[in-house]
Amino acid sequence: MSTSDLIKLGIEAILIQNVILTQFLGICPFMGVSKKSQSAIGMGLAVIFVMVISSGVTFVINDLILQPNKITYLQTIVFILVISGVVQFVEMFIKKTAPFIYKTLGIYLPLITTNCAILGIALINVQPEKEFGYAEMFVYTIGISIGFTLVIYIFSTIRERLENANVPKAFKGTPIALITAGIMSIIFLGFAGLV
């Protein structure tokens, strides 16, 4: 793929195929952690960090071990174990070397193992019809995780204002958050023809 295709793929990953608003991956943290924008940024950075590392590791494992031995049906079990392992080692690594970073995104790391986006993107990268090479995989994963952080940050700022809006009693909390996310998804639909 030429560089212009890569840039196109990157923009598409951030805006058009946005992981939350169009692919419906990573909704659990999107709903659970976006009450405060500070915690949303923490979650976003943690997702960028873990998604890029785990996608790289799973892509390599798929290329070197699963593909040649024709056991690609093991992808699910291998990928979830790799992601869980990567999360533990990343948390340990950050604890040791960068206490400041650990302060912002430390608590979200164990949450990330049950995040559908990380495993979802790792599996999408190795789909046979997508035919991703290393460059496309890398650009796609970075684009997707930036898209995740962008959306979760914007959503958290809106949600902070929602707290003191007079929402009917039955709609307080998750229902109104879902409806706001729906309106955001409509806005992101506007990007469809961009690329």
């Binding site: 952690v33 949450l111 193992t113 049950t114």
Partner: peptide, 8 residues
């Protein structure tokens, strides 16, 4: 306000 019950 985090609804995941399976995180450690």
């Amino acid at each position: 306000h985090c609804t995941s019950t399976s995180c450690s």
